[in-house]
């Protein structure tokens, strides 16, 4: 088959294909992915995105606003969602008593995927589906938190909540809401919010996964007096 042939050029060619293929695999392993979201952005980029008001659920005319500062990967935030949020949604938000405003407060050190999850939720918001995505992320928090790279799970949730996947993919790959998430994180920092979940209701603050009754008592007490501005 190859007798008498000089195999050197062939081995060089094979080597080139090997290097090219290796580079392709290496680039695929590092494209987008976790690292892109794990790094905080410079302050200058974040400043431009600082006007984001958070994700709102409930009536604009509700007399009381609750600002939640949360991290999609924080177990206490997940616990709050599981145990308390449904009651709040049904009994306080849907009834027009409370307007809920969700703010990203990723805890970078311990929650590696927090920013990526926040970004997936932002990409869902772009298509008007933030809250269903928010629910998916918390409902499946334990599963995706244990993964090496939850990008694929997030995409499955995006599909489940009915997002246009090509738009979602584009959003995730360009990372276009990273600056906004950074701005949210800095705004929360400036308010001294260092743990999640933290709830700011007027001048009151509640930290941790508190039960529904705690919120109900606070809302009831505020309902009897003028609402202090934030």
């Amino acid at each position: 088959m190859a007798q008498g042939m000089n195999l050197k050029p062939f081995y060089w060619g094979l080597g080139l294909v090997a290097v090219g293929g290796g580079a392709w695999i290496w680039a695929s392993l590092n494209r987008g992915g976790v690292e892109m979201y794990a790094e905080p952005l410079p302050a200058s980029e974040a400043a431009a995105a600082a006007s984001f008001p958070g994700y709102v659920l409930g009536s604009e005319s509700a007399p009381i606003e609750v600002n939640e500062y949360a991290d999609f990967q924080c177990p206490a935030c997940g616990l709050f969602w599981t145990l308390t949020f449904h009651d709040i949604e049904e009994r306080l938000i849907r009834t027009g008593r409370v307007r809920w405003r969700f703010h990203d407060r990723p805890i970078d050190g311990s929650h590696r995927f927090a920013r990526m999850a926040a970004h997936a939720a932002a990409c869902a918001d772009e298509q008007g589906r933030f809250w269903p995505m928010h629910d998916q992320l918390f409902a499946n928090q334990r599963a995706w938190s244990a993964e090496r790279n939850p990008e694929r799970s997030f995409r499955a949730y995006a599909r489940a909540v009915g997002l246009d996947l090509s738009q979602y993919d584009d959003c995730m790959q360009t990372g276009r809401f990273r600056a906004r998430i950074q701005a949210e994180a800095e705004a929360a920092d400036n308010l001294g919010i260092t743990s999640t979940p933290t709830f700011v209701v007027g001048r009151m603050r509640i930290s941790g996964a508190q039960p529904y009754d705690q919120f109900k008592r606070l809302i009831d007490s505020l309902s009897t007096q003028p609402v202090p501005s934030r």
């Binding site: 392709w24 695999i25 695929s28 494209r31 090496r148 694929r152 993919d169």
Partner: peptide, 16 residues
């Protein structure tokens, strides 16, 4: 390389 790429994706090492 093609099957390595698909396999790594299946393992979760390649995001999308």
């Amino acid at each position: 390389f093609v099957s390595l790429y698909l396999w790594l994706w299946k393992l979760g090492a390649v995001g999308s």
